[in-house]
Nucleic acid binder design. Structure first.
Length: 571
RNA sequence: CGGGGCGUAGCGCAGCCUGGUAGCGCACAUGCUUUGGGAGCAUGAGGCCGUCGGUUCGAAUCCGACCGCCCCGACCA
């Protein structure tokens, strides 16, 4: 491919809207252009990278027996009504009407379609197990896209679906995906770690997310260096110190003007935050009022809280009016005297004697509150966030918190969808059973961005061989001065094509500085330089982009590299 | 949806406070010179100053509404 013909353009200055290195570099190097918030075009270079990522995923999913297919982007809403998700999912599911006034949706994912296909096609246990997958555009009207390709509204995802006779079969296919994902991310040059994850509102019996540690990541990971423990903070349950035993003292009101935060309260009272109780107020999607109580030195974990109160449609912070209406006072709140509320108390609070809690009166708190003596919990559960340095649940060493980007997930769906659609098979026992499903996603664009995050320097991108849009970037210097340069470059370009490789050939009449700078920005794994100087030194100069290592090789040797080292198949 | 910021040429920005019909750098076109690290000179093209409305003799500039984009938060099967 001649650079003079490539549809692209590099930018010398960083686009103003880009913050993450991957976003900046993909824009500057001409891989991407933005069309709207969270909506991007892939230019030819970007498309090539995405295709190569796709091919790696395809090979590994094929290797575990996946059968590739393709399912539609636009679905009749009836399908989503039948599974119930039409009503459970909020505005991120795009709904519209077709010309016949029929309700339609843009697919966010394809469990419904698979369950429907299973109902049509699978009759007998002999047809299972199996895995189907496809690469398809998804649209999710995210409340806020961000970070270039990290969180977008329209994106291509590989989603595979395993279909099994029973949970044991599901475990096998789940494990297969787990192992396939490890291979995929390794081949893509990503250090992904599998963390235990929340199963969300769809139920299911287990889930892992594959995470790449990155400061711009949206998830918080709980990691242990000494034993390898790793969970999403949403579900991580770590050790908590045993509070010192004390006799329960009688409650006592105390005036605390202006102490509306735990910090202010602890400072005012001259006590550690661990001697206070923090109240957080929420409304569930089905209009229940929830008071969550954790100790002042911890934060409420909303995922755990959602799961505890089974808030299928999530939680939102309660308003001051809603709090008042239940007999409580924001900033001075506690369940003492509360009404019409679901009271959820963290288990550590149950063990922590004589805490300072809100008096539900402006400017007042209560000392020596003990549960359940002073109020009655509806639920006692572990509902706090793990903190940096807390003891690891498996080995006790201090845990670390890191931000992470989810590059893939695997999810044991179970039978929710197949029950909803009546996707049954007739078993060996002569009975009808629901098919057991798993679903497994990998977002292509997000992976491309994460690869750049992991493989770049100040000058630009440095693609791993496995995903580079071209194996090499051929630069000519002084072609006008020395016809041998042009001749050699043309020959090399042709040789590469003959060898079944395509390389990017900078045939532009630009200064050496411009060509080198662009080559380093675009990030092909090898930069090949042909110039009077290199010819005098015996051939072509090879530079490894990632390391800067250089050597000069005769053209025949470069042909050898093209055949063996550069692993790019012809487009 | 709450908070903050920004919309002026392909990209990065100035001009706005104090109204007088738009400017700089890069990129682009043509010519000459230059050619191992973002070249030089000359000439040139490119803008409904996000949109609509208002104030004014006159609006990129002042006022209002709306739209769009970015960041933080909420959200994230």
């Amino acid at each position: 491919m001649r650079l003079s013909e490539l549809f692209f353009s590099t930018l010398r200055d960083d686009p103003g809207e880009a913050e993450m290195p991957s976003h900046r570099l993909l824009l500057r190097a001409g891989y991407l252009r933005q069309l709207g918030s969270g909506i991007y075009s892939l230019l030819p270079l970007g498309k090539r990278v995405s295709d190569r990522v796709e091919q790696v995923v395809r090979e590994e999913i094929n290797a575990i027996g996946g059968q590739e297919m393709e399912m539609p982007v636009v679905h009749p809403a009836e399908v989503w009504k039948e599974s119930g998700r039409y009503f459970k999912i909020g505005p991120e599911l795009v709904r519209f009407k077709d010309r016949g006034e029929r309700d339609m949706v843009l697919a966010m994912t394809h469990e419904e379609v698979v369950a429907l296909l299973l109902r049509d096609i699978v009759q007998s246990y002999r047809q299972l197990p199996m895995i189907v997958y496809h690469f398809q555009t998804k649209f999710r009207d995210e409340p806020r896209s961000r970070g270039g390709l990290i969180r977008v509204r329209e994106f291509v995802m590989k989603d595979s679906y395993s279909c099994d006779l029973d949970d044991a079969g599901l475990d096998v296919n789940y494990k297969k995906h787990y192992v396939a994902y490890e291979k995929i991310f390794k081949r893509l040059g990503l250090d992904a770690i599998a963390v235990g994850a929340d199963v969300g509102i769809m139920g299911g019996t287990g889930a892992h997310e594959f995470m790449v540690v990155n400061d711009f990541g949206e998830d918080t990971l709980v990691l242990c260096d000494s034993c390898g423990y790793a969970d999403n903070q949403q579900i991580a349950i770590v050790g908590k110190p045993e509070p010192a035993a004390e006799d329960a003292l009688p409650m006592e009101d105390v005036e605390t003007p202006g102490a509306t935060t735990i910090d202010a309260l602890a400072t005012f009272m001259g006590i550690p935050k661990s001697k206070t109780a923090k109240a957080a107020f929420f409304m569930t999607g089905d209009d229940r009022f929830v008071v969550a109580i954790v100790r002042g030195d911890y934060d409420v974990n909303e995922t755990k809280l959602v799961n505890t109160v089974k808030a299928r449609r999530g939680l939102r912070p309660a308003t001051v009016e809603e709090i008042k209406a239940r007999g409580m006072e924001a900033g001075y709140g506690s369940p003492i005297g509360a009404r019409d509320s679901v009271v959820v108390v963290d288990e550590l609070v149950m063990r922590s004697p004589n805490l300072v809690a809100g008096a539900n009166r402006l400017g007042w708190h209560v000392k020596n509150v003990n549960v359940p003596r002073d109020y009655t919990p509806d639920h006692v559960a572990e509902i706090t966030n793990a903190r940096e340095g807390d003891p690891c649940p498996t080995c006790g060493a201090p845990i670390k918190l890191r931000q992470g980007i989810e590059v893939g997930n695997i999810f044991k769906l179970g039978t929710d969808f197949t029950n909803a659609f009546g996707s049954m098979y007739l078993g060996e026992d002569g009975e009808r059973h629901p098919i057991v499903m798993g679903s497994y996603g990998i977002g292509l664009g997000r992976n491309v961005a994460c690869i750049v995050e992991a493989h770049h320097d100040e000058k630009g991108i440095a693609w791993p061989d496995e995903v580079a849009p071209f194996a090499a970037h051929l630069v000519t210097i002084g072609a006008a001065r020395d016809p041998k340069v042009l001749e050699t470059a043309e020959r090399l370009h042709r040789l590469a094509a003959d060898a079944g490789r395509d390389i990017l050939y900078d045939d532009r009449d630009e200064s050496p500085g411009v060509k080198f700078t662009d080559a380093e920005l675009l990030g092909m794994p090898w930069i090949l330089t042909v110039s009077p100087r290199s010819l005098a030194a015996g051939g072509i100069e090879l530079t490894r982009r990632a390391t800067g290592e250089r050597s000069t090789q005769p053209i025949e040797a470069v042909e050898g590299y093209l055949r063996s080292v550069f692993p790019i198949p012809i487009a």
